[in-house]
Design a protein around this nucleic acid. Structure first.
Lengths: 118, 118
DNA sequence: CAGGATCCTATACGATACTG
DNA sequence: CAGTATCGTATAGGATCCTG
């Protein structure tokens, strides 16, 4: 069964690149928790996200938020308060990640079961 | 609108942990390409996977395959040939990742468009 | 409050050589 | 063929302190 023609393999390589593109954006320990936190509360301030996520440092939060903004997944809004507060929210494009996050949530739960049951 | 009760937040933390569980399993540069390669061809040998994935070293492939096996996502079968060949295939549990991979593929494509269009 | 600067460690990953 | 062993580098991430 040599239906694995060159076209097929080319198509497969394209798909692999696409998945990797996604993973590049979502990779690291904190991206998804951050998105998840902002998404859950709709709008969320820096210090609130810092509190939502166990163990994250302000250095990492700051860095990751920048990357997410660069990738157009979140929008940053500086509020005119004293002292300044900053609000983050998902862009429309960021919201399209919801399906994936939901899937990952579901799979994570079933995976944990699977591993524990031995 | 203070509907963010403790129960709500607890539920949210659970979900975040679940997503992180998934990401722990899928993290790193190579896990998904490996799964994707095995899945695409159904069964796949070590050296074939090595060729499917641009840039991966045998050291990493070996290491990642072990982790995937530990996580019960793939099954390893030693064939009685001379010299030995080893076949990898997805377990049933591993196959449940397909939805997620498909979603990530789709999202990766749309994300690339989004970023390029500026 | 929302970060930036600095320093440090651990881990991921790559390259190469070797073995049953 | 299917790995293992060894070594070296780069990056991720943590801790702490500083500032407008």
């Amino acid at each position: 069964m040599k239906c694995q023609t060159k076209d097929f393999r080319q198509e497969h390589k394209k798909e692999m690149r696409a998945v990797q593109d996604s993973m590049d954006v979502l990779n690291g320990k904190w991206k998804i928790p951050i998105i998840s936190s902002i998404c859950f509360y709709n709008k969320r301030r820096f210090s609130d996200i810092l509190n939502d996520i166990d163990g994250i440092s302000n250095r990492m939060l700051s860095k990751e938020l920048k990357e997410l903004e660069l990738n157009k997944l979140i929008k940053r809004t500086v509020l005119d308060t004293q002292p300044v507060t900053v609000e983050y929210q998902l862009t429309e494009h960021g919201l399209t990640l919801k399906t994936i996050i939901d899937n990952l949530t579901e799979w994570g739960i079933s995976h944990r079961k699977k591993i524990i049951e031995e």
